[in-house]
Design a protein around this nucleic acid. Structure first.
Length: 157
DNA sequence: GCCAACGTTGGC
DNA sequence: GCCAACGTTGGC
């Protein structure tokens, strides 16, 4: 049973790693993803106990804020069915929910953000999905060697 | 707030 | 199926 590694983006003004840490049971459902490639990862690829970097986007600085892990695998994103929800999608139905989410639980907050600029400094990370030109996937895979390398950076913070 | 890059929609 | 127009993301 191998563990997979991921990076989830969130705007901290909407939902930050501190919000996750102060959530009931330090757990949240990762709703609102409305991109098909990201949806496919949520629905098909992300497994129980997979590890997740919590990334703060549109922030100062943007970067990796800490770690969470998966406590429930892909299931229909009910916010898509709720007409009053900001993420409502009229194409989504109970029989064909289209959009999926997972649950994640807080594990660790880094002493400080590992900024995007810092990540860009390391040639070891040049193939990270996050660092590819034009990349804006909100759910993306992280290679094990990239994960391990970033953990080493985090330990030196 | 700007804007480049990307994804989606819809007319044809 | 093409592609222009539009909407969104996210760094700066």
């Amino acid at each position: 049973m191998t563990v997979n590694y991921w990076l989830f983006k969130s705007e901290p003004s909407v939902f930050s790693i501190d919000d996750l840490a102060s959530s009931p049971n330090q757990t949240t459902h990762w709703d609102g993803v409305r991109n098909y490639q990201a949806r496919n990862y949520l629905r098909d690829s992300i497994k129980l106990n997979d590890m997740v970097f919590f990334y703060h986007s549109n922030s100062d600085p943007s970067g990796i804020a800490g770690i969470a892990y998966v406590t429930k695998i892909g299931y229909p994103d009910f916010t898509a069915l709720d007409v009053n929800n900001h993420h409502h999608d009229p194409k989504s139905t109970v029989d064909n929910p289209i959009w999926y989410m997972v649950d994640v639980k807080f594990k660790e907050k880094f002493k400080s953000i590992i900024s995007l600029q810092t990540l860009k400094n390391y040639p070891e990370l040049e193939n990270m999905v996050l660092l590819q030109k034009g990349s804006r996937l909100s759910i993306q895979p992280v290679a094990k060697q990239e994960w391990d390398f970033i953990l080493k950076i985090a330990k030196k913070l």
